[in-house]
Design a protein around this nucleic acid. Structure first.
Length: 971
RNA sequence: GGGCGGUUGGCUCAGUGGUAGAGCACUUCGUUCACACCGAAGGGGUCACUGGUUCGAAUCCAGUAUCGCCCACCA
């Protein structure tokens, strides 16, 4: 007796066990084989500071489901995991740790600080791997990659060298986004514009000759100290006579010109704008046009510089603002202050106000790289799901800007460029400043390249995204031409959050095309953002986040996965509440209990096992590393009596479900896939098929065998269909089902508690594979401790059900539809009239026209079934017309009588009939109205017109019967 | 400022031209041996608004309102 299956599903009992089992048998390790198609994904590498959050849970569930689905379909499926060193994020965490010890990174020094970062990463950098395992992700742990692995660094160096030598990487002086907290520049896409309430200050700049003043408006008065001009529009008549005059810049001893530039909009404020080339991008460009000096008055520490003058130097930038305003007011030069909504640039990482300032940085010229990446998408070689992201991508790519890749950090890939200011140097590239630089991996190379010993390496490191941009090909071994690269590149799918579409996705496309000469992935799926139940972004500071690990602990990984997949449609947001996980957990429990029912009926209970009637099973032979996956076989089309309509119906529905699931998964409509499965299993298999199978299980040997074969076969197929989404519970049930299948592996599994794979005996390590440095994937020993026998098959390698045309059975579906409709109508009658179970049912064969006769009258078994499902007993004598001690209901144009004797409440019956009549009249009026409209009958397609005629006839028939019935009670 | 997405029962959402759906919540009934994390029955919506196309619109078109996302150098 499989009573070891508990009454309620307990995920904790099974999840760890099966994950260890899968790893032990090595079924996640992808080994390409000739003739076998490959499927590959390189997962978005989480930051080493990361911990699984809802976005990860959603994305990695999708990735895993797609991987498992392809694996079951016979692909060599690779899902390659890894992590990102995450320059800024990690450095921030480690600096915070240092701060707790009262130290700064500067005190520690560069080398020691980097050592601390490595320590941190060794200790915590792979925590998230274990969390992925909790989620059930079937990743190839033998191929784990980290962006600072030696081989990965080779890829970055090759990328840099190539771009540098081709002149795509250049040195530029620009206004960059300076993050004061991290003391580093950040790229445009790492800056968010936030709308804040602020002030607009109107300041007066007097003319140097004392002839009045010009008023300018600014939101940042402190930058006044760095102004080098005031601009007005050349077409602005107010200023035309004044262009070229000098203004005396208040609070300084400088004089600045009034210049004409189209950047100034006459309609804004006074029409004149202050120009601060060192602290504003527009002003910088304006300054370039007019050859204006650039005076840096705010330093990289966020404090005013010496250039700001003795009164301000050293002040914090926000303090300086107050001081400037006070001083201007004292001078009578503060004209007015207005409330104003300002757009404030905020650093995505530090949340600090970005300080735009002039800095010398390394840039990548993106335009030549963008072109092929645009074409690849336009030509459809890369497809976006949902499709609308294609346009978003293209718009950005068409307007791409150069990429600032240098970061003033220590944790990351140090820029492989060496400098010299030795005038005797000959090699490298010459900057206008007179310095030279050259690409070199080592000092020796640098000396050779520059021709001087007096050289030093650039202090900066590369933007984190410079390395992530290479992820698909670098993880597969590029720049070496590895077998993995040949087998798995281009990868099949990239799924990620929309917020890194530009930051990451676009750049991978560019580097893939540029370096490998091919797209990095065929499909890009952009998943929804997971919000809280109120539709707000989850954040630590708001404390409204849901921790997926808590959900897994409480409801299990399968329920967590299912709840996410149910909501992963084409919408851009998901409002997640814990209730969704509960609902999903209920489904798992339903699956568990229905399976228990099937399993318990597969056992021979009270009779001798002598006449074992299970049909013979032929194990499926598989090749290569795919383990044999035998199972209960579905009856084929040749399955003959005792096939019932219900049998044919459930096979047809199963088949339709398999088709729907495959088609939904193929287009990443995860919600559609889960919905199809949910509805099939719960509303069709459990609610109807299992119920209808019950009497057969108590029937004679043949009936019982047929019902068992059907139940086991359909359950087996359903488990397979569900496995990509619910890996754990399906494996647990499937193994138990296998154990009853009479196959060679029978009885190895879980007959008694304790004989299945136990986590303790397989030796699950909590911290899984620290992928130390950069070794080639070791051929790990997949053999578990030989203390017990592993199951020989796993559902994760069992063939995925494919739709088979021969199982489609529209006739059976139509007949079952009638049975279902009739059953519901009868149950409704009983409930409405409060009729006790056991009332007698009489189906009047003679009174039934059309399809209903076929479905009901010509199939006595169905009538009996109907009665049973509605908890009624069948009567063999028709109701006596005069007595009135019966009720009737129209079903599919026919009529079924229910004999209830003296219990009949005439008033209730009339009320019920009237209610039904009202509904019928509504339908008759609708269909009748349409058919009476010549415009409809003449212009609508013939089949639609016929459809309405049929409907009208049906309803009218029902109406007639009900009126007759009602007449019996009228006095 | 530009672009995109949403607006369907109390809640969360399916539904792209032909009888408005699901889950949760709600009401009534039911613990006969798969499941009360369950079963049966029921109530509940003029599909945001206005106009248009059409025999027919939740669905297609235009506009409006509203919520959200992305992009953007008006100080």
């Amino acid at each position: 007796m499989p009573t070891e299956l508990a009454k309620a599903y307990d995920p904790r009992q099974v999840e760890e066990k099966w994950y260890a089992y899968w790893k032990a048998i090595g079924c996640f390790h992808a080994v390409p084989e000739p003739g076998k198609p490959n499927y590959s994904i390189t997962i978005p590498p989480p930051n080493i500071t990361g911990s699984l959050h809802m976005g990860h849970a959603l994305n990695n569930t999708i990735l895993d489901a797609m991987t498992r689905w392809h694996r079951m379909r016979g692909f060599c499926a690779l899902c390659l995991p890894g992590t990102d060193h995450a320059g800024i994020a990690t450095q921030a965490v480690v600096e915070r740790e240092l701060a707790k010890e009262g130290k700064t990174r500067q005190e520690l020094g560069r080398e020691a600080f980097i050592a601390r970062c490595w320590e941190w990463r060794e200790q915590y950098g792979t925590r998230i791997y274990h969390q992925f395992e909790r989620l059930g992700c079937s990743f190839d742990w033998d191929r784990v990659r980290f962006t600072l692995d030696e081989s990965y660094v080779e890829a970055i160096m090759e990328e840099f060298r190539s771009w540098y030598e081709r002149g795509l990487i250049y040195r530029g002086v620009r206004v960059v986004n300076w993050d004061v907290k991290f003391q580093s520049s950040v790229s445009d896409i790492e800056v968010n514009m936030e709308t804040r309430a602020g002030k607009l200050y109107h300041l007066r700049y007097p003319f140097a000759d004392g002839s009045g003043s010009v008023t300018i408006a600014t939101t940042r008065p402190e930058t006044l100290l760095g102004d080098t001009a005031v601009a007005a529009n050349p077409d602005d008549a107010r200023y035309q006579p004044l262009f070229g005059k000098l203004l005396r810049l208040p609070l300084t001893d400088r004089e600045i010109p009034l210049i004409a530039d189209e950047y100034a909009k006459p309609e804004f404020g006074s029409g004149a704008v202050k120009v601060t080339p060192a602290h504003d991008l527009n002003d910088f460009e304006c300054g370039q046009r007019h050859g204006l000096p650039q005076i840096i008055v705010i330093g990289k520490d966020g404090r005013m510089t010496e250039a700001a003058g003795p009164d301000y130097a050293g002040l914090d930038r926000f303090e300086a603002r107050k001081r400037v305003l006070a001083d201007m007011e004292a001078l009578g030069l503060l004209e007015k202050v207005e409330d104003y909504t300002i757009q404030l640039p905020i650093s995505d990482r530090s949340k600090e106000v970005i300080e735009p300032l002039l800095s010398e940085e390394w840039f990548v010229d993106m335009r030549p790289l963008a072109r092929p990446a645009i074409d690849a998408v336009k030509e459809g070689r890369i497809r976006f799901y949902p499709d609308r992201f294609k346009d978003i991508y293209l718009y950005w790519m068409e307007n791409i800007r150069d990429w600032n890749i240098s970061r003033q950090l220590w944790w990351g890939h140090r820029i492989p460029l060496w400098w010299t200011d030795d005038p005797a140097a000959t090699g490298g590239k010459l900057e206008p400043s007179g310095r030279r630089h050259a690409f070199a991996r080592t000092r020796e190379q640098a000396v050779a390249a520059l021709g001087t010993e007096a050289c030093w390496q650039d202090e900066d490191v590369l933007d984190t995204w410079f390395s992530s941009a290479l992820w698909p090909h670098a993880t597969l071994g590029w720049p070496e031409q590895t077998e993995d690269l040949a087998a798995f590149y281009p990868t099949s799918l990239l799924s990620t959050a929309q917020e890194i579409l530009y930051l990451w996705v676009a750049r991978m496309i560019m580097t893939g095309l540029d370096f490998v000469g091919d797209i990095p992935f065929r499909d890009v799926y952009i998943h929804a953002t997971v919000l809280d139940a109120k539709g707000e972004r989850m954040s630590k500071s708001k404390g409204n986040g849901i921790d997926p690990l808590d959900l897994i602990d409480k409801y299990g990984a399968d329920a967590t996965r299912l709840s996410l997949m149910q909501q992963a449609g084409k919408n851009q947001d998901i409002r997640y509440s814990e209730q969704r996980t509960e609902i999903a957990a209920n489904f798992c429990n339903k699956l568990w209990n229905a399976s228990r029912f099937v399993l318990m009926n597969l056992e021979d209970r009270d009779e001798a096992t002598a006449e074992h009637t299970d049909p013979p099973i032929t194990p499926i032979q598989t090749t290569g590393n795919q383990l044999p996956a035998t199972s209960h076989q579905l009856p084929s089309a040749s399955y003959q009596p005792p096939a019932t309509i219900a049998d044919r119906w459930i096979l047809s529905r199963l088949n339709a479900t398999a088709a729907a699931v495959s088609s939904a998964l193929a287009s990443y409509d995860m919600d559609d896939a889960t919905r199809a499965l949910y509805e099939f299993f719960w509303n069709e298999f459990c609610d109807w098929y299992v119920e209808m199978a019950k009497p057969r299980l108590r029937g004679d040997t043949g009936e019982r065998a047929a019902a068992r074969q059907m139940l086991a076969g359909v359950l087996d197929q359903t488990l397979r269909l569900l496995h990509p989404i619910l890996p754990f519970i399906t494996e647990e049930i499937w193994q138990a089902l296998e154990a009853t299948a009479g196959s060679p592996i029978r009885s190895r599994m879980a007959r008694q508690p304790g004989t299945g794979p136990q986590a303790s005996t397989i030796g699950v390590s909590p911290a899984i594979h620290p992928p130390s440095s950069d070794k080639e994937p070791a051929t790990t020993n997949h053999q578990p401790a030989a203390s017990y026998q592993l199951p020989a098959a796993t559902i994760s390698l069992a063939p995925y059900p494919e739709a088979r045309a021969e199982l489609d059975d529209p006739a059976a579906e139509a007949q079952m539809a009638t049975v279902i409709e009739a059953t519901r109508a009868l149950r409704n009658l009983r409930a409405e009239l409060g009729i006790a179970p056991g009332a007698r049912l009489q189906a009047m064969a003679v009174a039934m026209p059309g399809a209903a006769r076929e479905a009901l009258a010509e199939n006595a078994a169905l009538i009996a079934e109907l009665a049973r499902l509605a908890a009624l007993s069948v009567s063999d004598s028709p109701p006596s017309a005069g007595s009135g001690k019966w009720v009737a209901t129209p079903i599919a144009g026919a009529e079924v009588f229910l004999e209830i004797g003296d219990a009949l409440d005439t008033e209730k019956e009339i009320a019920r009939i009237d209610k039904e009549l009202a509904e019928i009249e509504k339908q008759v009026a609708r269909a009748g109205g349409m058919l009476a409209n010549p415009a409809f009958t003449e212009r609508a397609p013939a089949d639609k017109v016929q459809q309405e005629r049929d409907r009208l006839a049906t309803w009218q028939e029902k109406e007639v019967r009900l009126r007759e019935r009602r007449a019996i009670f009228e006095r």
